[in-house]
Nucleic acid binder design. Structure first.
Lengths: 124, 124
DNA sequence: TGAAGTTGTTTACGGATGTAAATAAAAGGC
DNA sequence: GCCTTTTATTTACATCCGTAAACAACTTCA
């Protein structure tokens, strides 16, 4: 299971968009990533092509163009990236990691409540 | 301030060791990373050299060898890596990130208590 | 004082990554 | 049935990364 993949920084940008809006065409990916990333259309197409090659994306041809969609599950990629980050930066210790993010971010009351609930579920 | 640096995976291994045990000599880094990372001594020396070049490490010569120590603060590198990971994988949303790690890790009662305290401090 | 060993420096090299131009293929308009 | 436009595929290239051997400089032990 979890036929997952290592994604680079730029590849995450593309995959996040595809996961959110799939199926999606190259043109729309280009449009959506043009300003935030300042990528030329050619660059975006290269990313799509590479992601297909590494089997993170699949596509269905329709006439001239492709409908792209994800071939790996977001949850699996998140899990993998999270694990790697945890090991690399926090030596595998989740508690200090959590402490860091709790300290450096701000949360709404709802979010805080929800996090407490999750902690409670851990207890048992 | 925060004259920080992007560290690669392998570089984090070295830096983590240096932060923990500085000042430290190449020989000891080699010894400490030999089994966990399966790196040859030459590889470790290359890493040290590159880290000096990118100004993440500094050194004081003593006779034949160097005493290495960090030239960037761990907290700064952690902050930078954490920010980058948060943006990349969780689109900048800390709450889902925390939820993920709370769900996928196990914590002792002390850790849970401490996390609750941190959440309480957020509230105010 | 020279041989041997240790330590740092240079060079090497294949694969990944960011970035994008050049080219081929195909679809659509006239 | 061609020309133009759009889309995908190939090729390009500098930099970084993991990995390590080759080399030079300096100590140290006989």
């Amino acid at each position: 299971m979890s036929d997952t993949v290592e994604l680079s920084d730029a590849e995450w940008q593309v995959m996040n968009l595809v996961w959110d809006r799939q199926p999606i065409m190259a043109q729309d990916v280009i449009g959506a990533l043009a300003e935030p990333c300042c990528w030329s259309p050619a660059t975006v197409r290269t990313m799509l092509h590479r992601l297909v090659k590494k089997e993170a994306l699949q596509f269905t041809p329709e006439g001239n163009r492709y409908w792209y969609r994800a071939a790996v599950r977001r949850a699996d990629c998140v899990r993998r990236a999270a694990r790697s980050f945890l090991d690399r930066v926090f030596d595998g210790e989740a508690a200090p990691l959590l402490a860091h993010f709790v300290r450096t971010a701000r949360f709404s009351s709802e979010e805080l409540a929800q996090l407490r609930t999750l902690l409670d579920q851990q207890e048992r």
